[in-house]
Design a protein around this nucleic acid. Structure first.
Lengths: 191, 191
DNA sequence: TCATACCTATCTAGTGATAGATAGTTTGTG
DNA sequence: CACAAACTATCTATCACTAGATAGGTATGA
């Protein structure tokens, strides 16, 4: 039971932050979402920083598993990136949610230090994974591009997060779909 | 005199919002930045929504002038996009500021309605301008891409705003430089 | 001309609501 | 009982915003 309250708090906090960001979400909102008093939330997470850090760490670790799974199961580089991008699309379709760390990157200067570090770690890990897939695709002829894999990886991740904001604003997830397809076409060799 | 207070408020508000977003900025911060009491700010901008709307409208109109100037003076499509991207780089180098509307897009669900509409208008105008330049470059052979100009324009704008957050987080404007160059290389024909 | 009236831009002081956080207490369960 | 997990009640700080006053400028009109 106590475990499910803890997890329920993280889940609800993630929902709120993925929509409104770290500053526009409060213990009061969380209290209403979970059904316990704000004081009781402080029992589980003494400060907002504690909550934020636990949340991003869980998200980051979960994502590391997703990355490993895609790499294990995918046939080629293009379908790896497609499956990666699919996670962002699913998140967006779930009530217009934004990638947690994409959202927190926009709140970065106002974030507690430990949360900042978790968000940066997420970016580093994701950029490295994308760069690795890009490099594979470059070497086996699936992809064609001139910049370094690291730089191109950054443009891919930026396109994903940027287009999530765009698609949410226009309440049209197809905008993210088209953005992903267009970007992948830019580096795909065939035609 | 009264005019300069009004403008000074807009300037200071823009600085604060470009760093912290709409929710993490307050009349109190603004008061400290310009040196008048919060009550006096309400004389010029009765509500935060009024301030936000005036600010984004001014920004949008200023940007429309920038777009027209680039189009008037630039020789080819690639240098138009380079000059466009250069504005984002200058903004970032100015104390890690983010494009105002890129920042507000991340705050979108919590924004007052009139501010939301101004931000959307900014996106529409900028996407249309980029798409037009891309189409020109496609037709004269400067660029090569498969998606529609509109979709590719969205990936360019998303790359710019997304990479601003990235570069700010790592306190390294060169990351934006490399992102821009890599993206432009993806659609450039030569080599 | 000069007094009355209005306007502009600021101020002090305060509203109710909400923020994150704390102390101390009750409740449920093994 | 002992402990975990919730509670009530409260704190201080800040939020956007308002009321009412004031000083100085400007316009009007007898």
């Amino acid at each position: 039971m106590e475990r499910s309250t803890y997890t329920g708090l993280l889940d609800a906090a993630q929902n709120l932050i993925q929509r409104d960001g770290f500053n526009a979400f409060s213990y009061r909102h969380l209290s209403e979402a979970v059904g316990i008093r704000t004081a009781s939330i402080h029992y589980h997470f003494p400060t907002k920083e504690d909550l934020g850090e636990a949340l991003v760490r869980r998200y980051r670790e979960h994502f590391a598993g997703v990355l490993a799974e895609i790499k294990r199961e995918s046939l080629d580089a293009r379908s790896s990136l497609e499956r990666y991008a699919e996670r962002f699309l699913e998140t967006l379709k779930d009530d217009g949610k934004i990638c947690l760390c994409g959202m927190l990157a926009s709140d970065y200067p106002t974030l507690p230090r430990d949360v900042q570090n978790e968000v940066k770690a997420f970016f580093v890990e994701n950029h490295a994974w994308i760069a690795h897939v890009l490099q594979e695709g470059l070497e086996d002829g699936t992809f064609k591009f001139r910049g370094t894999s690291e730089d191109v990886a950054m443009t891919f991740f930026s396109t994903l997060t940027g287009s999530m904001f765009d698609a949410r604003m226009f309440d049209d997830s197809e905008r993210l779909v088209r953005s992903i397809r267009s970007w992948l076409d830019l580096i795909s060799h065939k035609e």
